[in-house]
């Protein structure tokens, strides 16, 4: 940890970064914080807990106000996937953002069922094995169709319309949100119109979701949102060969034609 703090301090001193978005210890609670060269003493409170905050979502808040600053950001595997996608969508300039990589602990990787619990370059922690687990999707795929419908409707009907899933999502960077369009989803109702509210969000996640699972952690109604979004992520890779969160390459083929503009999806099994 001391080595890590020293590394950040060096980055400050060399002018390579003008701020570092990390986590600070506040009493019992780890909370996000932007460390700056003006207050190097704050680095004493820097911590790397097994708790995840939406770092890239916070980064966007800062970048909107300070588009020219060189910033370092603490990135786990999930954060790095988010940054890759934000670059593709031209929300951040890669040359201004320095990834400071954290490998997740085995505990965290297990509780997140994370398929890539580390970023490309690691500055802290030891790489642990990825967790391959699609049992949540399989469990639903094997249900009879009607049971599947009832299952999702009963899950969606718990929704209290807090918008937490959207608010915490690093990939929800639109200026206007369809979920708030009164013509599409009547405002003022909780639960909101189901399943349209959740399916529209799921569809939006198709080319974007980087499978961090923060949405599900933020859901007061305990709706298995991540399973839903993991499914559309799979559909994207299965039918269109697109995996969001990978570095460089093509953009979301649902939004952009891409260089292979004539690409058509493989055929769907309607059974």
């Amino acid at each position: 940890m001391e080595k890590f703090k020293k590394y950040i301090k060096e980055l400050f001193e060399s002018g390579e970064i003008e701020g570092f978005l990390g986590i600070r210890k506040n009493g019992l609670h780890p909370v996000p914080h932007l460390f700056t060269p003006e207050h190097p003493e704050e680095l004493e409170t820097l911590t790397i807990p097994d708790v995840r905050y939406p770092m890239t979502e916070i980064l966007l808040t800062i970048v909107r106000k300070y588009p020219d600053k060189k910033l370092g950001i603490m990135v786990r595997g999930c954060d790095e996937r988010a940054l890759n996608e934000l670059v593709k969508n031209q929300k951040i300039l890669p040359e201004l953002i320095k990834h400071i990589g954290i490998a997740c602990s085995a505990d965290l990787a297990a509780s997140c069922r994370c398929a890539q619990p580390y970023p490309e370059e690691i500055h802290y922690g030891e790489k642990v094995a990825p967790v391959e687990d699609r049992s949540d999707i399989e469990a639903i795929d094997t249900m009879p169709q009607e049971e599947r419908f009832d299952y999702w409707m009963s899950e969606f009907s718990k929704c209290i319309k807090c918008y937490g899933c959207r608010n915490i999502c690093s990939m929800c960077f639109c200026d206007q949100c369809t979920l708030e369009d009164n013509d599409l989803i009547a405002t003022g109702q909780a639960p909101p119109a189901i399943p349209i509210f959740h399916l529209i969000r799921a569809f939006h996640m198709a080319g974007r979701c980087i499978d961090c699972g923060l949405c599900e952690e933020a859901c007061p109604a305990h709706i298995p949102l991540r399973t839903l979004y993991r499914k559309v992520r799979e559909s994207m890779s299965g039918f269109l060969g697109y995996v969001s969160g990978t570095e460089g390459g093509e953009k979301d083929p649902l939004e952009f034609l891409g260089s292979e503009g004539y690409m058509v999806p493989s055929k769907i099994d309607e059974k």
């Binding site: 609670h29 996000p32 708790v51 807090c162 918008y163 608010n167």
Partner: peptide
């Protein structure tokens, strides 16, 4: 942001809190 380590809401909030 919801406090993720808070014993009551454990990283969740309602629309008023958000």
């Amino acid at each position: 942001l919801p406090a993720k380590t808070h014993p009551i809401n454990e990283g969740k909030l309602c629309i008023k809190g958000w």
